[in-house]
Design a protein around this nucleic acid. Sequence first.
RNA 1: GCACGGGUGGUAGAGCGGUCAAUUACAACAGACUGUAAAUCUGUCGCCUUCGGGCUACGAAGGUUCGAAUCCUUCCCCGUGCA
Length: 259
Amino acid sequence: MALERNGEVISADSRQVYRGLDIGSGKITKKEMRGVPHHILDVSSPKKIFTASDYARLARKAVSDILNRGKLPIVCGGTGFYIDALLYDDTTAPVPPSPTIRKKLDKLSTGELAQRLSELDPDRFASIDTKNRARLVRALEIVLSTGKPVPKLKRAPRYSAEKIGIMRPMEDLDRRIELRLDKRLSAGMIKEVEELHKKGVSWKRLYDLGLEYRYISLFLRKKLSYDEMRSQLLTAIRQYARRQMTWFKRDKEIRWISR
RNA sequence: GCACGGGUGGUAGAGCGGUCAAUUACAACAGACUGUAAAUCUGUCGCCUUCGGGCUACGAAGGUUCGAAUCCUUCCCCGUGCA
């Protein structure tokens, strides 16, 4: 598509932003790019946490650069939240994460966090998932660092964009996922994870990166046998694919093609 | 052949006379998503339902009991030990 329409690609993938996460994240290779410039790949160290707002900032810069060159920006990827962060203004509260506040909040139980939020910001409390720690912590972080309730977000479109989604039967996807996994495994994905750890990416961090990085690191730590790792990872990837569909299905602007 | 141990929902595995359609975990299905988003979290999960309940279920068949997944008998499978 980029070749046909004089475009450049902007990746919307929350793992391909990290250097060294190549096979496991399915990062496109130089050769596969066929001369088409690709953006927002390898922009962060895997030791750091790259956020949706970092993504929005970089991707918007890329969009305007591409437009200035008279070319078509093509955003491509499966991280729905990142795509929204790029396409809409006001998708996240403008409050950077605060390690100090988080450290304090981490000591509280989920119930206590919910309790505090209900006192400090009843409005946000009413709509939040009260069992989701990560959400509660973030909401409290916003309230505590601004001294104000969590702002209502407008989600204003920033660009006029055409959204295209590829839909295929789940069985078909499942089959392709398995083939893809085995291909990655034989392409040295385990080695890749081992290398990342050697270079200082902690086990905890690898776990948090999810999917291939999570399960392979568990295998490397001998918490899982090879077969357990492969089958649990396969399941996790399939579940993730379904979660992605849940996200995209609710976006009524997407035009679905089967391809 | 004898002696033990065991057969429970898609899977693993609790329950060991009533409060059991059956703890829990996983899988499956659906969903959420305010700077970790490949993350995090929620709901449903035997069948039917007018959501009150009804029905069929814990290897099989009988039996004991007001009442059994839980006790007894026989049978069929599985594992271990002795032959």
